[in-house]
Design a protein around this nucleic acid. Structure first.
Length: 649
RNA sequence: GCGCCCGUAGCUCAGUUGGAUAGAGCGUCUGGCUACGAACCAGAAGGUCGCAUGUUCGAAUCAUGCCGGGCGCACCA
C-alpha cells in the first residue's frame, strides 16, 4: 500500500516541477529521520537551490503551494532548511488497507531466468552451497512476489573434472565396479561417502602425481560416452543430483529445470556457438606465443582497452577441446534464446505439491515439456570469485553483437562462506600456523574441509528440539520435531540472508545456532504470537469481528491518532515497498532486515496493548484488525524469505 | 604488478544510493512473567565511521592518495 501512495506523491511533485519550474530531474523520496516529521520527506528543494539560485526553504514553500492537494495526503509542511514533510491522511490510509486496495499482483510480462545452486554432482552440499541456493531462491521469491515471471534453473556439470575425480577414486583407488557403486547408492549415505572419497582422491593426486592420468582417462571416457568409467560417472552424478535436490528441499528450495552439461556436449551446443564466434570474429586462432594453436578471445573484449596487453582468454585448447568459459557462452546464448538450438526435456521428479522438475536430455521425447530458456533477463547466482569468468561470458555476448542481452546478463555475485577459527576448533580441524593467523579459513571440497549442509540442518533441528520439548512437553514427539524443523530451517535461512552479499560470512556454530535476537525464530515468534491472539479469541467462544462493519473511516481516523498504532500500521503496509527496493538493490538481506524490524514493532505493540482485555468495543475491534493485518503482512514477508510459521513456539 | 571487495560500538553486522541527532543484534549491567506463554520487553553503558586531503549548502556514503585485510588475474571448473 505504502508504495502506491509513494508513487502518487512522487508523480504530483514531478508534474509540478515540470509545469511550474520547467525542471525535469529525478529526485528521491525518503523516510524522515523522525516519525514525528511525517511519513515521507521530499528533499528536492536542496537539489534545485543551485540551478534556481534561491534558498531551499523558499523553493520548498512555493512548491508546496503549487502542488496543492494530493489524494490521501493530509498535510505538507516545510521543515528544517528546506525539507518538505508529507503527512498521510490516517483515516483514509487505514480504510484503504481495510478494503485491501493492494490487489494481488498479476504474473505477467517477460521471463526472468535465475540460475542458482549449480553444485558439482560429486559430493555432499556444504554451507557455501547453501548460501548460493538460499540467496537465489529468496531472490526468485522476491521477483515472483513483485509479479515477475521467473524460471529457476540449476545447472548440472555432470561431465566435469570434479565428477571425474570421484569416479577415478571409485575405479582406480578402490577398484569398484558400477554394480558395486549402484549398491553403495542404495545402502549408504552416498553423498557423504563421495565427500570423503573426493578428498582422498585429491590427496592421492598430490602424493602420486602420475595418478593424475586417471582424471584424463576418465574425462575422455565420459566425453566418448562409453565404457565402465562413463557408466560410473552417470551413476555418481545422477545419484548426487538427487541428494542435492533432497537437501535443498529441506530448505523449501525448488527448481523448474536442470540443464546438464552432458546435453550441451551431445547436442553440440558448443559447435553452434563456435560457428557464431568465428563468424563474427569474436575469437581468433592464435599462431604464436604460449597460446599458439588455441582459439582465444582478445583481452580487450573483457578488460579495458588500457589492459590490452594482458593475456587473452583461451576458449578452445590446442588439443581442440573447449574450455568451461566456451561452454558457458553457449549456455548463456541458449538462456537468451540466441543459440538456435534447444535441449530435449524429460520429467525428473515431482514435488509433493505436484510441481514437476525437468531435466535436459539428448533424445527427443513424446511427452511435451514447457518452453524453457529464451529469457529476457538472466541472473546468474555465482560467487564473487568467478567474476572474471562472468565478465568473459558477457564480453562474448557483446562481441557477438548482443549488447542488450549482455546488459541483461547479471552476475548476482556474493562473497564466500568461510570457517571462523572457533568453528575449525569445534570441528577438530587442525590449522597450519599460517592459517591460524587468518580471520577465517576457506571451505575446500577438495580437502574435505567444510560443514556439510545436512549435518548443519540436523544439528539445528536437535538444538531447536530441546527448546520445543522443554516448552511444550505435552505435545507428541512427532509434532515437536515438525515444529523444531520449521524453527531450525527458519533460523538457517535467516542466518544466511541477514548478511549483505558483499560480506564474507565467517561461519560460526554459536551464531548460526542462535534463536534469539536478530534471527529467523524471532520473526517466526512474532507471527505465532499474532496467531495466538485469534486462537485465544476462538477459545473464548468469540469470532473474529467483521472489521469493515465496525471500523468506519472515522473510527480509523480516531484510532490511528494513537502514534504507536499508526507507526506499526505504517510499517506493516510497507512490504511491497521494501520488496521493490530490495529487488532494485539486488539485496535479499534488505527483506530479511525488514522482516526483523516489522517483528520488533509488533513485539512492542503486543507488549503495550492488552488486546483481548480492551474494554472499549471500537478500540478492541481496531486492535484486533491491526493484529490481523500485521499477521498477514508478516506471513507474506516470511513467505518471501522462504520461512514457515510454526504451529506454536 | 593489475582488477574487484571489505575496514562503522568489546564482538558480528546494517546504514533506504549525498540528507535532519550514525543504528541493530550479541555480550555486559539494572529491571519486568498472574497465559493475548519471557525464543519476549523496558532501561543503561559503549563511536576520531582505518588515516589524510578534496568536491558542496551537507560526506560513513562521492574523488584522489596512503595504511590494513580478503579474493581474483590457467590450454581447472
Amino acid at each position: 500500500m505504502f508504495h502506491i501512495l509513494d508513487k502518487q506523491i512522487y508523480a504530483a511533485f514531478r508534474d509540478r516541477l515540470r509545469s511550474n519550474f520547467g525542471v525535469e530531474s529525478h529526485f528521491v523520496l525518503e523516510q524522515p529521520r523522525q516519525s514525528s516529521f511525517g511519513e515521507i520527506a521530499v528533499p528536492v528543494a536542496f537539489q534545485l537551490a543551485r540551478t534556481l539560485k534561491q534558498p531551499p526553504a523558499k523553493i520548498a514553500a512555493s512548491l508546496v503551494s503549487a502542488v496543492g492537494e494530493i489524494p490521501g495526503v493530509a498535510a505538507m509542511e516545510v521543515a528544517g532548511n528546506g525539507y518538505i514533510n508529507v503527512r498521510f491522511d490516517r483515516g483514509a490510509y487505514g480504510a484503504a488497507l481495510l478494503e485491501g486496495v493492494e490487489a494481488a499482483s498479476v504474473t505477467e510480462g517477460v521471463k526472468i531466468i535465475v540460475e542458482h545452486t549449480n553444485i558439482n554432482p560429486n559430493k555432499a552440499a556444504h554451507i557455501g552451497h547453501l548460501r548460493n541456493a538460499v540467496l537465489g531462491d529468496t531472490f526468485v521469491r522476491m521477483l515472483r512476489a513483485a509479479g515477475h515471471r521467473v524460471e529457476v534453473q540449476n545447472y548440472i556439470d555432470n561431465t566435469g573434472v570434479q565428477v571425474a575425480d570421484v569416479v577415478a577414486g571409485f575405479h582406480f583407488l578402490e577398484g569398484k565396479t558400477p554394480a558395486d557403486v549402484a549398491r553403495l547408492i542404495g545402502e549408504t549415505r552416498f553423498d557423504y561417502l563421495c565427500w570423503d572419497l573426493y578428498a582422498r582422491t585429491s590427496q592421492h593426486y598430490k602424493d602420486v602425481p602420475e595418478s593424475l592420468a586417471w582424471r584424463a582417462q576418465t574425462l575422455h571416457a565420459v566425453e566418448a560416452g562409453e565404457g565402465e568409467l562413463h557408466e560410473l560417472a552417470h551413476l555418481v552424478s545422477n545419484a548426487i543430483v538427487n541428494t542435492h535436490l533432497a537437501t535443498m528441499l529441506r530448505l523449501n528450495i525448488q527448481y523448474d529445470v536442470l540443464p546438464r552439461e552432458s546435453e550441451i556436449l551431445h547436442l553440440r551446443f558448443w559447435a553452434s556457438a563456435f560457428e557464431l564466434l568465428k563468424e563474427r570474429k569474436a575469437i581468433y586462432f592464435e599462431t604464436e606465443g604460449r597460446n599458439a594453436g588455441c582459439w582465444v578471445m582478445p583481452s580487450s573484449s573483457f578488460r579495458g582497452e588500457d589492459d590490452a596487453n594482458e593475456d587473452s582468454k583461451v576458449i578452445v585448447r590446442s588439443n581442440g577441446t573447449v574450455t568451461y568459459v566456451g561452454k558457458d557462452i553457449a549456455y548463456q546464448l541458449w538462456k537468451f534464446g540466441l543459440l538456435g538450438k534447444d535441449f530435449h526435456y524429460k520429467p525428473l521428479t515431482r514435488y509433493t505439491d505436484g510441481k514437476e522438475v525437468w531435466v535436459s536430455t539428448a533424445e527427443p521425447q513424446t511427452h511435451p515439456a514447457p518452453a524453457f530458456g529464451g529469457g529476457h533477463t538472466v541472473y546468474n547466482v555465482i560467487d564473487v570469485r568467478q567474476s572474471y569468468l562472468q565478465d568473459v561470458v558477457e564480453a562474448g555476448l557483446r562481441a557477438l553483437g548482443y549488447q542488450e542481452q549482455a546488459d541483461r546478463s547479471i552476475h548476482f555475485s556474493y562473497e564466500m562462506v568461510a570457517l571462523s577459527p572457533r568453528c575449525c576448533a569445534d570441528l577438530g580441524i587442525e590449522l597450519s600456523a599460517e592459517d591460524a593467523k587468518r580471520p577465517y579459513v576457506e571451505v575446500s571440497g577438495r580437502k574435505g574441509l567444510g560443514v556439510k549442509a545436512d549435518d548443519l540442518m540436523d544439528k539445528l533441528i536437535e538444538t531447536a528440539l530441546v527448546e520445543v520439548a522443554s516448552r511444550h512437553a505435552e505435545d507428541n514427539p512427532a509434532a515437536q520435531r515438525a515444529v523444531a524443523t520449521e524453527i531450525a530451517m527458519g533460523a538457517l535461512r535467516y542466518f544466511l540472508l541477514k548478511y549483505t552479499r558483499t560480506t564474507v560470512i565467517a561461519f560460526d556454530f554459536q551464531e548460526a545456532l542462535s534463536f534469539e535476537g536478530e534471527t529467523g525464530p524471532y520473526v517466526q515468534y512474532a507471527a505465532v504470537r499474532a496467531r495466538n491472539i485469534f486462537r485465544k479469541l476462538e477459545e473464548r467462544g468469540e469470532e473474529k469481528p467483521v472489521f469493515s462493519a465496525v471500523l468506519t473511516r472515522d473510527a480509523m481516523a480516531r484510532q490511528l491518532a494513537d502514534e504507536d498504532c499508526w507507526q506499526v500500521l505504517l510499517s506493516a503496509s510497507r512490504v511491497g515497498s521494501a520488496v521493490e527496493k530490495a529487488i532494485t538493490s539486488g539485496e535479499p538481506a534488505h527483506v530479511a532486515r525488514f522482516a526483523f524490524q516489522l517483528a520488533q514493532e509488533f513485539a512492542a505493540f503486543y507488549q503495550k496493548f492488552k488486546i483481548l482485555d480492551e474494554p472499549d468495543a471500537e478500540r478492541r475491534a481496531f486492535l484486533l484488525w491491526m493484529t490481523d493485518f500485521f499477521r498477514a503482512q508478516l506471513e507474506r514477508t516470511l513467505a518471501i524469505l522462504g520461512i514457515a510459521v510454526p504451529a506454536y513456539m
